[in-house]
Design a protein around this nucleic acid. Sequence first.
DNA 1: GCAGGTCGGGTGGCTAGGCCACTTGACCAC
DNA 2: GTGGTCAAGTGGCCTAGCCACCCGACCTGC
Lengths: 247, 247
Amino acid sequence: MPLQLVEPKRLYRQIADQLAQLIAHGEYPAGARLPAERELAASFGVSRASVREAIISLEMSGLVEVRVGTGIFVTAQPRSVERAGDAGPGPFELLSARKLVEGEIAALAARNASADHVSALWRSVERLDACIDDFTSREAEDRDFHLLLAKATGNGSLELVVGGLWNQRAELWGRLQRHFHTVGLAQKTIRDHAAIAEAVEAHDADAARAALHRHLGRVMREFQRGVDDAAPRDGDATARRRGKAAP
Amino acid sequence: MPLQLVEPKRLYRQIADQLAQLIAHGEYPAGARLPAERELAASFGVSRASVREAIISLEMSGLVEVRVGTGIFVTAQPRSVERAGDAGPGPFELLSARKLVEGEIAALAARNASADHVSALWRSVERLDACIDDFTSREAEDRDFHLLLAKATGNGSLELVVGGLWNQRAELWGRLQRHFHTVGLAQKTIRDHAAIAEAVEAHDADAARAALHRHLGRVMREFQRGVDDAAPRDGDATARRRGKAAP
DNA sequence: GCAGGTCGGGTGGCTAGGCCACTTGACCAC
DNA sequence: GTGGTCAAGTGGCCTAGCCACCCGACCTGC
């Protein structure tokens, strides 16, 4: 029993976390086949049902693809960011796109949000605080906050836009998460979200936009640091170039 | 066995879909408790394991929240405004979302566009002029222009965002057959696109944003006229109501 | 009366073991 | 070579059961 019985969180999440880590660390590269469910169950010391639940959650996150009768495969993702080659948008593009789009969304949300929307935002902040130790639910809560912000604009299309941005993020997830899963970072995120919620509650559009820009700006800087730490040679030059116009 | 044996997709997805429908249709309003897993299993005629998998997928989608020893609860989010016969965002929501998002994209494009990008925009305007009589290629050309504008920002994520907005548009038009697109409208579109291209070429961000706002604002007004003609009652009141908070 | 405890029914969490349908590739006959 | 068969491996799904937890009803005892 390598996993604690009834300690912190649901079993399938622990398993999903561990598998996600293995994938992120390159143990199972994109396109690779994971061990069979029965093997995973044995090696984790859990039942096959729990493994299946974990797999389903990974499937939902787009990290993994299940082919019946064949196996479970790591979703084919664009080449790793550490390699200079890039297919699809990189993390900095995504983050600056989010800054642009979600900044305006925050401003509009500040103008349109109802009391219900505001309290939903605050509840999300509280939930994030509550699950600070659980990587998976932290991710979900983060996403939720930004979706709630979009919802607070009262414009369903904008919700879908933000959802699309988070889907883009999911594609980068395996690469990003290594740099993004410290608790300290999550705590800063809580403060940022709270600042945004506050501005929305005050119906201050400019403050909301600014707070969101600060939030994502900080995330960009943190990620930059992560890239520098991981690859002090030229990783950041590559990354920085990717953030500018691509001729 | 009310559910087909080995038909289309995995069981848990079918169950999740049905539950999501029930939630969307207000069968289980926000905050309500779903029937117990065992009951759901019985009523669906499936095993509890499958129900659990479905619940986990709904949990991952943020539709549902599981409280151990207590029950499964619908997450407090009012996506159930199904009433007036429309699911998903309406045309006015989509257009104002595009105004918000693409306005900023136009401004950024004005700052970042290279000479190549600018000439690509002009070529698109010319092509639109050339195929003014062909409804289908006119549509494609229109879409192309807006995608080129996003590409001119140099940010791949923004291209995907605009692509997503046009997908929303495609779905909308599937629902409401009314493509009130006239040649006269297309000619105004050409002028609008030209104005945007001009502002981008001049690297004038504010002018670009304003030109795009004018463009989509005009489209909104035209569409409004179409709605009024077709249904003089309250077509837009519905749309407007959906923009406010849903109790 | 009213705190404070107990207890039991209901709920989700997880395990064990089993059967089925599907995929794949090796093997064999033609 | 081509085509078919067949068996092993895989995920899909089920049954049956025990456990930990939550909560309300029901008792105590002050």
